[in-house]
Amino acid sequence: MTAPSPRAAAAQRPRRLPVWPLYLVGLTPALWGFYLGATNQLGADPVKSFEHMLGLWAVRFLILTLAVTPLRETTGINLIRWRRALGLLCFWFALFHFTAYLLLDLRALQLQDAGPILADIAKRPFLLLGFAAFVMLVPLAVTSGSWAIRRLGSGWGKLHRLIYPAAVCGAIHLLLAAKTLRLEEAVYLLALILLLLWRLIPRARRRTLFARAGKA
């Protein structure tokens, strides 16, 4: 494209989009799913459906979070103002997913002896990877506020690179969760792989590659 530079510069500026509706809309699937499950309208295996749905939303928000920078670099559309909300939504859904697994699936609160279950979990790379991804998201969520960003300075950026190993663990967790890979999950995996590979291209190289859309 041969857009004149003032327009490209305008595109580069963060979009003046309000953030709160994103939280509202983003959390709706969890509330709706919980309502359906609590009233037994989630089909024959409500716990599994709810668990799976929460996990898929965590993946969707992870993909959107990771897509913000490549989108800016390739098209100039700057959604940086939404990135924190997208990342936090990913964390919240991961938390709900993990909580649903513990409380609804394993019924952790009713267990007399958690020993065998814990021993069993320790043997499953698929569960451990999911748990690792969640654990890595925790410090990112905790330090997502403006205060933490100021306080941590350049350390903040380093800390938040944890999103990459978290994404790798989450992707493998998703891959191993089902008996066979379905089209939707395959698309998510491909998106995650591409978004992670994007980070392997040195930033300077990315700039020259997409100079037209970027600085112009």
Partner: peptide, 24 residues
């Protein structure tokens, strides 16, 4: 004998109701 990716030690009985009737 577990499935390589998940345990076969327990199962969820389908049709036990919503979240709170779930039967493992």
């Amino acid at each position: 004998v577990d499935h390589p990716r998940w345990s076969q030690a327990s199962e969820r009985r389908i049709g036990a109701g919503g979240f709170f009737g779930s039967d493992r």
